[in-house]
Amino acid sequence: ISFAESDLLKVAVVGRPNVGKSSLLNRLLDDQRLVVHDEPGTTRDAVSLPLLWRSQQLLLIDTAGIRKRGAGGDQREELDRMAVQRAYQAIRQCHVALLLIDSAEGLLRQDLIIASLVIEQMKSCVLVANKSDLVHERGRIALHRQIEERLPSLGYAPIVHASALHGDRVEQALELALDAARWRRERVSKRRLNEVFKRASMLRPLPFVDGVRLKIKYVTQKDTEAPTFVLYLNREAQLHPSDRRWIENTIRSQWPFTATPLRLQFVADPRKRQQPGRRSSTKKLAKRRPLRRG
Results as ranks from 00 to 15, higher is better:
residue 77 E to S: 10
residue 78 E to H: 13
residue 78 E to M: 13
residue 81 R to S: 14
residue 83 A to Q: 04
residue 83 A to L: 08
residue 84 V to Q: 10
residue 85 Q to S: 14
residue 92 R to T: 13
residue 92 R to P: 00
residue 93 Q to D: 14
residue 94 C to T: 15
residue 94 C to K: 09
residue 94 C to L: 10
residue 94 C to A: 15
residue 97 A to N: 05
residue 99 L to P: 06
residue 102 D to W: 09
residue 103 S to P: 01
residue 103 S to L: 05
residue 103 S to G: 12
residue 104 A to L: 11
residue 105 E to M: 07
residue 106 G to P: 01
residue 106 G to H: 07
residue 110 Q to A: 07
residue 110 Q to R: 01
residue 111 D to S: 12
residue 112 L to Y: 02
residue 114 I to C: 02
residue 122 M to P: 00
residue 122 M to Q: 14
residue 123 K to N: 10
residue 123 K to R: 15
residue 127 L to N: 05
residue 128 V to W: 06
residue 128 V to A: 03
residue 128 V to R: 04
residue 128 V to D: 01
residue 132 S to T: 04
residue 133 D to N: 03
residue 133 D to L: 07
residue 135 V to S: 08
residue 135 V to F: 06
residue 138 R to Y: 00
residue 139 G to Q: 09
residue 142 A to C: 01
residue 142 A to E: 12
residue 145 R to N: 12
residue 147 I to C: 01
residue 154 L to D: 00
residue 156 Y to D: 02
residue 160 V to D: 10
residue 160 V to F: 10
residue 160 V to L: 12
residue 161 H to S: 11
residue 162 A to T: 10
residue 165 L to Y: 06
residue 166 H to I: 00
residue 168 D to C: 01
residue 173 A to W: 07
residue 173 A to I: 08
residue 175 E to F: 06
residue 176 L to K: 04
residue 176 L to E: 11
residue 177 A to Q: 05
residue 178 L to E: 02
residue 178 L to K: 07
residue 179 D to W: 10
residue 180 A to R: 07
residue 181 A to F: 08
residue 185 R to K: 15
residue 187 R to K: 13
residue 190 K to C: 04
residue 190 K to A: 15
residue 193 L to I: 08
residue 194 N to Y: 01
residue 194 N to M: 08
residue 194 N to F: 02
residue 195 E to W: 02
residue 201 S to T: 11
residue 204 R to K: 14
residue 204 R to E: 12
residue 205 P to L: 07
residue 205 P to Y: 05
residue 205 P to M: 01
residue 206 L to E: 05
residue 207 P to A: 11
residue 208 F to W: 07
residue 208 F to K: 15
residue 209 V to R: 12
residue 210 D to G: 01
residue 211 G to T: 08
residue 211 G to S: 09
residue 216 I to H: 06
residue 217 K to T: 00
